[in-house]
Design a binder for these strands. Structure first.
Lengths: 332, 332
DNA sequence: GTGAAAGCGCTAACAG
DNA sequence: CTGTTAGCGCTTTCAC
């Protein structure tokens, strides 16, 4: 374990000069710099990030807290974020919040958040009050579709608009008997209510009254749950010719459920998802879906983070990303 | 920002006593303890993990370094690991290594590894020499199928055996013209060579000579690549009746490619994958595959980590997890 | 059972 | 341009 003092001794300078060289501060003579860098090289010195943070309050690390590691949506977002952060000399560590009931609170604890220069918090599954109680020593930017305390910067998708585009597309391609595979009304603004509203509005604008039994209520947004629900529904109601699935994972289940019922996608039933997971492109047929524009989210999240880290003061930003339609084979 | 001194002052004790209470050390009087805990509660104190680590060298955090966040295999492993670590009072942070060429080295730097009590390093894509050059201040346990320096603890799957079981199953279910969707021989022991060897051995044991053109060489283990390669192959060679895909992601592409060629799974071509990704179960037909037994890996990895963290000395362990067959609809 | 002193490795602030 | 001093918040050590 070599320290800065070791390097300083080896180079015949003070620790402060070593620190100045290593952090690229301007006031170091060129030959002193070379001598220090040689000593660093020779001793294999690497900075102790823990000590650096304790003193300076910075490490270059950004935290991303997601509800679960095994959902591809977060994996795809995290991958893009990691690349973008690496490009600006930072790095990303991802933590999972709701591995267990207590895990949720533990991951959000002051102490753990404080290990990062800033934190991106994905609020899926968190409630307004949980987040409102949060006290963080570092800047926090919220990501996700829940209604959240306005004092935070918050980036979300155009859920209503995306669902509207998805549904309008189904109608345009000739579907008339539309279902939505979603959840029940939770009584507060959420991804579910916003996307359901978009599905409803598109039909009203086309002069269609949404079917009263149009919502297939799913206990969980998982493929297996959707698959069984869709199969059961189609067996008693074969008139259905279009289904908007509230997420791509649900859409994967919907497509399997349609097949289980002996029907074909897209000839008998057209399907549109929401999330544009990489895998949707590889199915046969490939999934028509709404793109959550991760690049857009990453770009704007990083801008907010950098400005907050720099201490810039400005009112909390509430950004809504576009959510364009991606047309593939699951619609005609 | 309240510190331990603030709490000590509020409770009328020394910082040392606060530290003792908070860390459950035995030598504190019951009523002192209550007084301290009250002060902690009142002031909303939370420990500064950075300071704690600088002094004690421990934070309770375990690092998992994966090649990429957006591969579901790692997501599923990380999720299970996070749950298990939470249960023992630790927590998991996941970092991505090869977001870029330099990212790989950066993620493995001494400095970054040192922010954890121990590190699980997934070595997919890393070379023997990269890992051999690694100097870490904390225990490192290797995860993955590459050949690695024996001085590390290393957990891998039974690649050859799993591939053998997958192939034997295809033969048992009547397939006779077998392909493997894999990569070329890289000239060193790897996941590719081990799984290809298992595929070969199963055929030899059944009295079949593996076809010289039996390996569909994929430029990358991605669904899109496999899909196109399989479609092209089946169009010139319709006699194929069984394909072992080297990973589930490849298998997803293989199944789509079979359909693209106008054939059916499993009636015309049977398919077996390797990884048991959650999604494989939701396809129609569901994917027969080899289970990488994440639970087994997690259990053994945690055991090694805890013992190394505790400073226990023992020879490097090289463990091979079972890799059982999971039979579903993609085989008859 | 409790506390005082020392210092983990680094950097901010300032002196030279 | 370079060095000195002080101290981030905590735990280790050892004295009482």
């Amino acid at each position: 374990m070599t320290t800065m003092s070791d390097v300083a001794a080896a180079a015949g300078v003070s620790v402060m000069t070593v620190s100045n060289v290593l952090n690229g501060r301007p006031k170091v003579g060129p030959e002193t710099r070379v001598r220090v860098l040689e000593a660093v090289e020779r001793l294999g010195y690497e900075v102790n990030l823990t000590a650096k943070r304790l003193r300076s309050g910075r490490t270059g690390a950004i935290g991303l807290i997601v509800p679960r590691f095994d959902h591809p949506y977060f994996g795809e977002l995290a991958a893009k974020l990691a690349v973008a952060l690496t490009a600006v000399g930072r790095h990303l560590a991802v933590e999972q919040s709701n591995a267990s009931a207590e895990g949720e609170l533990a991951a959000l604890s002051h102490a753990r958040l404080a290990t990062y220069d800033a934190v991106l918090l994905s609020v899926v599954g968190l409630h307004y009050d949980d987040v409102d109680r949060l006290r963080s020593a570092v800047p926090v930017v919220l990501l996700g579709e829940q209604d959240m305390p306005p004092r935070y910067d918050h980036i979300q998708l155009d859920n209503e608009g995306g669902a509207h585009r998805a549904t309008a597309h189904l109608l345009e391609r000739g579907a008339r008997n539309l279902l939505i595979a979603a959840g029940g009304d939770e009584g507060f603004p959420s991804m579910t209510t916003a996307r359901t509203a978009g599905w409803r509005r598109a039909q009203l604008e086309a002069g269609l009254e949404p079917r009263p039994d149009g919502v297939i209520e799913l206990a969980a947004y998982e493929a297996a749950v959707a698959r069984e629900a869709v199969r059961a529904r189609l067996e008693v109601d074969p008139s259905v010719d279009g289904i908007f699935a509230i997420t791509d994972q649900v859409a994967f289940g919907v497509m399997a459920g349609v097949r289980d019922a002996g029907l074909r996608v897209p000839q008998d039933v057209q399907v549109v998802g929401f999330d544009n997971l990489a895998l949707g492109e590889q199915l046969a047929p490939a999934l028509t879906t709404i793109d959550p524009t991760h690049d857009w989210v990453v770009e704007h999240a990083m801008d907010l983070l950098e400005r907050r880290i720099a201490g810039e003061e400005f009112p909390p930003q509430h950004l809504v990303s576009p959510a364009p339609l991606v047309i593939r084979g699951s619609t005609r």
